[in-house]
Computed example of a mutant assay.
Amino acid sequence: MAELIDKTYGEALFQLSLEEGKVEQYADEVRSIKEAIAENPEFMVLLDHPQITREEKVEVMRNCLDGRASDSVTGFFVTVIQAGRQHFLMGMIDYFLDAVRKYQHIGIADVTSACALSDAQKAAVEKRLLETTGDVSIEINYQVDPEIIGGLVIRIGDKVADNSIRTQINTLTKAILNS
Protein backbone atom coordinates (compact mmCIF):
# COMPACT_ATOMS: atom_id res chain seq x y z
CA MET A 1 0.00 0.00 0.00
CA ALA A 2 2.84 2.39 0.83
CA GLU A 3 4.24 2.09 -2.69
CA LEU A 4 0.84 2.93 -4.18
CA ILE A 5 0.53 6.02 -1.97
CA ASP A 6 4.11 7.09 -2.80
CA LYS A 7 3.40 6.66 -6.51
CA THR A 8 0.02 8.39 -6.48
CA TYR A 9 1.19 11.50 -4.66
CA GLY A 10 4.67 11.58 -6.20
CA GLU A 11 3.24 11.26 -9.70
CA ALA A 12 0.69 14.00 -8.95
CA LEU A 13 3.48 16.40 -7.97
CA PHE A 14 5.50 15.41 -11.04
CA GLN A 15 2.52 16.00 -13.37
CA LEU A 16 1.92 19.37 -11.71
CA SER A 17 5.55 20.33 -12.30
CA LEU A 18 5.20 19.37 -15.97
CA GLU A 19 1.93 21.29 -16.40
CA GLU A 20 3.41 24.40 -14.84
CA GLY A 21 6.70 24.01 -16.72
CA LYS A 22 8.68 24.10 -13.49
CA VAL A 23 10.18 20.62 -13.24
CA GLU A 24 13.68 21.81 -12.32
CA GLN A 25 12.43 24.45 -9.88
CA TYR A 26 10.16 22.04 -8.04
CA ALA A 27 12.86 19.37 -8.00
CA ASP A 28 15.30 21.85 -6.40
CA GLU A 29 12.71 22.85 -3.81
CA VAL A 30 11.82 19.26 -2.98
CA ARG A 31 15.52 18.28 -2.72
CA SER A 32 16.05 21.12 -0.24
CA ILE A 33 13.04 20.01 1.78
CA LYS A 34 14.27 16.41 1.77
CA GLU A 35 17.70 17.53 3.02
CA ALA A 36 16.12 19.64 5.76
CA ILE A 37 13.97 16.72 6.91
CA ALA A 38 16.99 14.39 6.87
CA GLU A 39 18.96 16.87 8.99
CA ASN A 40 16.04 17.22 11.42
CA PRO A 41 14.46 13.78 11.95
CA GLU A 42 12.42 15.13 14.84
CA PHE A 43 10.37 17.04 12.24
CA MET A 44 8.82 13.78 10.99
CA VAL A 45 8.19 12.73 14.59
CA LEU A 46 6.27 15.99 15.06
CA LEU A 47 4.25 15.44 11.86
CA ASP A 48 3.35 11.90 12.96
CA HIS A 49 2.52 12.80 16.57
CA PRO A 50 -1.08 11.81 17.33
CA GLN A 51 -1.68 14.58 19.88
CA ILE A 52 -0.91 17.35 17.40
CA THR A 53 -3.92 18.25 15.27
CA ARG A 54 -3.80 18.27 11.48
CA GLU A 55 -4.44 22.00 11.53
CA GLU A 56 -1.39 22.53 13.75
CA LYS A 57 0.71 20.28 11.50
CA VAL A 58 -0.44 22.24 8.44
CA GLU A 59 0.50 25.49 10.16
CA VAL A 60 3.94 24.14 11.04
CA MET A 61 4.49 23.03 7.44
CA ARG A 62 3.35 26.37 6.03
CA ASN A 63 5.67 28.22 8.43
CA CYS A 64 8.62 25.99 7.52
CA LEU A 65 8.11 26.42 3.77
CA ASP A 66 7.17 30.11 3.80
CA GLY A 67 9.55 31.90 1.44
CA ARG A 68 11.49 28.67 0.77
CA ALA A 69 9.10 26.88 -1.60
CA SER A 70 6.63 27.87 -4.28
CA ASP A 71 2.92 27.97 -3.54
CA SER A 72 2.39 24.76 -5.53
CA VAL A 73 5.04 22.77 -3.64
CA THR A 74 3.79 24.15 -0.33
CA GLY A 75 0.25 23.25 -1.37
CA PHE A 76 1.37 19.70 -2.15
CA PHE A 77 2.87 19.22 1.31
CA VAL A 78 -0.18 20.77 2.96
CA THR A 79 -2.46 18.43 0.99
CA VAL A 80 -0.41 15.42 2.13
CA ILE A 81 -0.82 16.45 5.77
CA GLN A 82 -4.53 17.23 5.37
CA ALA A 83 -5.02 13.73 3.94
CA GLY A 84 -3.18 12.24 6.93
CA ARG A 85 -0.47 10.78 4.67
CA GLN A 86 2.56 12.54 6.18
CA HIS A 87 3.99 9.18 7.28
CA PHE A 88 4.60 8.43 3.58
CA LEU A 89 6.15 11.80 2.79
CA MET A 90 9.73 10.60 2.20
CA GLY A 91 8.53 7.88 -0.19
CA MET A 92 6.51 10.45 -2.12
CA ILE A 93 9.54 12.74 -2.32
CA ASP A 94 11.75 9.88 -3.54
CA TYR A 95 9.18 8.87 -6.17
CA PHE A 96 8.93 12.47 -7.42
CA LEU A 97 12.71 12.90 -7.60
CA ASP A 98 13.06 9.55 -9.43
CA ALA A 99 10.43 10.67 -11.95
CA VAL A 100 12.33 13.92 -12.49
CA ARG A 101 15.59 12.00 -13.05
CA LYS A 102 13.91 9.73 -15.60
CA TYR A 103 12.36 12.74 -17.34
CA GLN A 104 15.75 14.45 -17.52
CA HIS A 105 17.54 11.21 -18.51
CA ILE A 106 19.73 11.18 -15.42
CA GLY A 107 20.76 7.70 -14.33
CA ILE A 108 21.80 6.43 -10.91
CA ALA A 109 24.45 3.79 -10.43
CA ASP A 110 26.16 2.14 -7.47
CA VAL A 111 29.75 1.17 -8.18
CA THR A 112 31.64 -1.05 -5.75
CA SER A 113 35.39 -1.56 -6.03
CA ALA A 114 37.99 -3.31 -3.87
CA CYS A 115 39.84 -0.02 -3.27
CA ALA A 116 39.09 3.65 -3.83
CA LEU A 117 39.08 4.65 -7.49
CA SER A 118 41.18 7.54 -8.77
CA ASP A 119 39.51 10.51 -10.45
CA ALA A 120 40.66 9.20 -13.84
CA GLN A 121 39.14 5.78 -13.13
CA LYS A 122 35.89 7.39 -11.98
CA ALA A 123 35.77 9.46 -15.17
CA ALA A 124 36.30 6.31 -17.26
CA VAL A 125 33.54 4.48 -15.40
CA GLU A 126 31.17 7.43 -15.83
CA LYS A 127 31.97 7.70 -19.54
CA ARG A 128 31.36 3.99 -20.09
CA LEU A 129 28.10 4.02 -18.12
CA LEU A 130 26.82 7.01 -20.11
CA GLU A 131 27.65 5.20 -23.36
CA THR A 132 25.94 2.03 -22.15
CA THR A 133 22.79 3.57 -20.68
CA GLY A 134 22.19 6.41 -23.11
CA ASP A 135 21.53 8.77 -20.21
CA VAL A 136 22.47 12.45 -20.47
CA SER A 137 24.21 12.33 -17.10
CA ILE A 138 24.59 9.87 -14.28
CA GLU A 139 24.81 10.08 -10.50
CA ILE A 140 27.28 7.51 -9.24
CA ASN A 141 27.56 6.34 -5.64
CA TYR A 142 31.00 4.83 -5.10
CA GLN A 143 31.62 2.25 -2.38
CA VAL A 144 34.70 0.30 -1.35
CA ASP A 145 34.45 -3.38 -0.40
CA PRO A 146 37.85 -5.12 -0.09
CA GLU A 147 36.09 -8.51 -0.06
CA ILE A 148 35.43 -8.35 -3.81
CA ILE A 149 39.25 -8.60 -4.19
CA GLY A 150 39.32 -6.71 -7.51
CA GLY A 151 37.17 -5.63 -10.43
CA LEU A 152 33.88 -3.79 -10.15
CA VAL A 153 30.29 -4.48 -9.21
CA ILE A 154 27.91 -2.04 -10.89
CA ARG A 155 24.23 -1.78 -10.01
CA ILE A 156 21.80 0.31 -12.05
CA GLY A 157 18.26 -0.14 -10.84
CA ASP A 158 17.60 -3.86 -10.65
CA LYS A 159 20.44 -4.76 -13.02
CA VAL A 160 23.82 -5.86 -11.68
CA ALA A 161 27.07 -6.30 -13.61
CA ASP A 162 29.39 -8.23 -11.30
CA ASN A 163 32.90 -8.42 -12.72
CA SER A 164 34.60 -8.87 -9.37
CA ILE A 165 37.48 -11.26 -8.79
CA ARG A 166 35.48 -12.83 -5.92
CA THR A 167 32.63 -13.75 -8.27
CA GLN A 168 35.03 -15.08 -10.89
CA ILE A 169 36.72 -17.26 -8.26
CA ASN A 170 33.35 -18.52 -7.01
CA THR A 171 32.23 -19.33 -10.55
CA LEU A 172 35.48 -21.16 -11.29
CA THR A 173 35.26 -23.07 -8.01
CA LYS A 174 31.70 -24.24 -8.80
CA ALA A 175 32.74 -25.27 -12.29
CA ILE A 176 35.64 -27.33 -10.94
CA LEU A 177 33.51 -28.96 -8.26
CA ASN A 178 30.75 -29.84 -10.74
CA SER A 179 33.07 -31.43 -13.31
Rank of each mutant, 00 (worst) to 15 (best):
V30N: 05
M61P: 00
V80S: 13
E55P: 00
L152Y: 09
I93P: 00
L129D: 07
E55Q: 08
Y142S: 01
E29L: 08
V60S: 13
T132K: 15
A116F: 05
S72G: 02
E56P: 00
H87M: 15
I108Y: 14
R31S: 09
G134T: 01
D162K: 02
I37F: 14
D48S: 08
S137Y: 03
I154V: 05
Y142I: 01
T171Q: 12
M90V: 06
T79E: 15
M1C: 00
Q121K: 06
P41T: 15
S70W: 14
A120S: 05
K57R: 11
E147P: 11
G67R: 05
D135P: 01
T8L: 06
D162P: 01
D98S: 05
A69R: 07
A124I: 00
A120P: 00
D98C: 00
V80C: 12
I169M: 08
P146M: 06
E39W: 12
S32D: 15
A27Q: 06
Q15R: 12
R166P: 04
L65M: 12
V111M: 05
R85F: 10
D66E: 15
I106M: 11
A36I: 04
I138M: 02
D28Q: 10
K127D: 15
M90R: 07
F76S: 06
V125A: 10
D158H: 05
E11Q: 09
T171K: 09
I176H: 09
L97D: 10
D48E: 15
A27C: 06
Y26V: 00
T167P: 01
D28T: 07
R31K: 08
A109K: 04
C64K: 08
S113A: 09
G21T: 04
R128L: 04
E39K: 08
I108F: 11
Y26S: 03
P41A: 12
F88K: 04
T167R: 13
T74L: 05
L13P: 01
Q15Y: 12
A114L: 11
L97K: 07
R31F: 10
N170S: 08
V136K: 08
A69D: 11
E42S: 00
A116P: 01
D98L: 04
R31Q: 11
Q143L: 08
D6F: 12
D6P: 02
C115R: 14
I140Y: 04
A69E: 09
N170D: 15
E56K: 06
D145C: 02
R85K: 08
G10W: 02
Q143R: 10
E24F: 04
S17W: 02
Y95C: 06
K7E: 14
I154L: 03
A83D: 14
G10Q: 04
D110Q: 11
E139S: 02
M44N: 09
S32G: 14
D94I: 09
V30W: 10
T167A: 11
I149T: 13
Q51R: 07
I33Q: 08
V73W: 13
T171N: 11
N163I: 13
E11I: 01
T74Y: 04
R62Q: 12
R166Q: 15
A36T: 12
D162C: 02
